[in-house]
């Protein structure tokens, strides 16, 4: 550990705001990159399933 207290860890000798902004932004962008494909996948499955159901209903 390079920091004595939690405050020192967040403050980082005055550079805290830059460091935390950079890490936060990285987290947001990386998380979005996982999130969007997951949402897209869910939507694709949902759309395809309802299309299949509609086709089956038409047959019946």
């Amino acid at each position: 550990m390079k920091f004595e207290s939690l405050t020192a860890f967040f403050y980082m000798d005055g550079h805290g705001i830059y460091i935390w902004a950079a890490y936060g932004l990285t987290l947001v962008i990386l998380a979005a990159n996982v999130w969007f494909p997951l949402i897209a996948r869910r939507n694709i499955i949902r759309a395809e399933k309802s299309a299949v159901l509609k086709a089956m209903n038409r047959k019946l």
């Binding site: 980082m12 000798d13 550079h15 805290g16 830059y18 460091i19 950079a22 890490y23």
Partner: peptide, 8 residues
């Protein structure tokens, strides 16, 4: 030289 900002 850069202090803690090198963590970026």
């Amino acid at each position: 030289q850069q202090g803690n900002s090198v963590r970026i």
